[in-house]
């Protein structure tokens, strides 16, 4: 690892500016690639055209949903890694996304029709999963790094079984929608325009909470006792961020399904470039995470004519993230050291 100066205001400002440019480039790419049949010029010139309707009711919400989903997952991954002192933590790997999927599907299939039902169910599922998984992985008051991953895997399997039970009892129409939603797709549902503002609001909650506690997350690396001696209460911090991050995770999973590994890939890349200081890591991960999912989604939609079908974007992120996870586990085991 190369020598790196600690974070300064100047470095932080440059990093945020660069990440914004990356995000804007990703959005531009998404509009260029994402909907091959759409002619942007016509859509913008003639508001009455089908092109304009497709742009505003499909493509724009899709890009925005991808952006918020990626930002939420990357932000949550970075924060969870700090909270659990475990560089392999990620909402998907820990079973939090699985819990959110179960919660939101239960809320929808039980016939709660309101737009907030799915995100609320997702929130409860995510929070329940986080509390359960960390409690089960705790040894003498601390979360054991490798055990939490194992518990997450098992919890994911259980959540998957729960989903299948729910689906077995669902009527075919609702079932198809639920299954499709869970595959991990950021495509917007034009019949539910309320979801996008809900997503954005939920993300704002998570972002504000995470940024407010960025420096406390750094201090947690020193251990719970030292954190306490510096005026940071680790138990309260964990509980607070578990709750407030479950808000956007629950909403994102409810709307876009299971998009895995974004919370693993993006914070790792950002840490390599900028170091682990959460005051930079959290906002930059959010921006880069948004860009990552927007680009991944543009790639799957650009590939769809050639493939004859559209792959869920979660397939692409898993194809990138899965091998990365295995590589980290194999070559950087110290990042998930077994507690001694």
């Amino acid at each position: 690892m190369t020598a790196r100066a600690p974070l300064t205001a100047r470095r932080l400002a440059v990093a945020v500016a660069v990440a914004f440019v990356v995000l804007l480039a990703a959005v531009a790419l998404a509009f260029a690639l994402g909907m091959p049949e759409l002619d942007l010029k016509t859509a913008l010139d003639d508001p009455a055209s089908w092109q304009a309707r497709a742009l505003w009711s499909l493509q724009v919400p899709r890009v925005l949903q991808g952006l918020v989903a990626g930002a939420t997952l990357a932000l949550s991954g970075a924060a969870l890694q700090g909270l659990l002192r475990n560089a392999l933590a990620d909402p998907f790997i820990l079973g939090v996304s699985g819990g959110a999927a179960l919660g939101s599907t239960a809320a929808v299939l039980t016939g709660l029709g309101a737009a907030v039902a799915a995100p609320t169910g997702g929130f409860l599922g995510a929070l329940g999963a986080l509390l359960l998984v960390t409690a089960l992985a705790s040894e003498r008051g601390r979360v054991a790094p490798l055990r939490v991953l194992l518990v997450g895997v098992v919890f994911n399997a259980l959540a998957g079984a729960g989903l299948m039970v729910l689906q077995a009892f669902a009527d075919p129409g609702a079932l198809q929608a639920a299954v499709f939603r869970l595959m991990g797709s950021v495509g917007a549902d034009p019949s539910r325009p309320a979801l996008l503002p809900i997503l954005a609001g939920a993300f704002a909650v998570g972002l504000a909470a995470a940024l407010a506690h960025a420096r406390s997350l750094d201090v947690l690396a020193l251990g719970d006792d030292t954190a306490r001696s510096l005026g940071v209460d680790p138990d309260r911090l964990r509980l607070r961020l578990f709750v407030l991050l479950s808000v956007p995770i629950g909403a994102v999973v409810a709307v876009t399904g299971l998009i895995g590994f974004v919370g693993l890939i993006v914070p790792h890349a950002v840490r390599l470039a900028l170091g682990p200081d959460h005051r930079a890591l959290l906002p930059i991960s959010a921006l880069v995470g948004g860009a990552f999912v927007v680009v991944a989604d543009a790639v799957v939609s650009a590939l769809s004519p050639a493939l004859g079908t559209e792959l869920p974007v979660g397939v692409l992120t898993a194809l990138v993230g899965g091998p990365l996870f295995l590589a980290l586990l194999r070559w950087r085991p110290s990042q998930a050291e077994v507690a001694t």
């Binding site: 475990n86 407010a212 750094d218 201090v219 510096l230 940071v232 170091g275 682990p276 050291e337």
Partner: peptide, 29 residues
Amino acid sequence: AAPPGDLGYSALEIALMGRVPHLGGLARL
């Protein structure tokens, strides 16, 4: 002593964490 686990902080970044009780609120540097 610090717990195991390595998120990649440098020694200087670790030492700087001692300044936390003296920093202003939120994300002040």
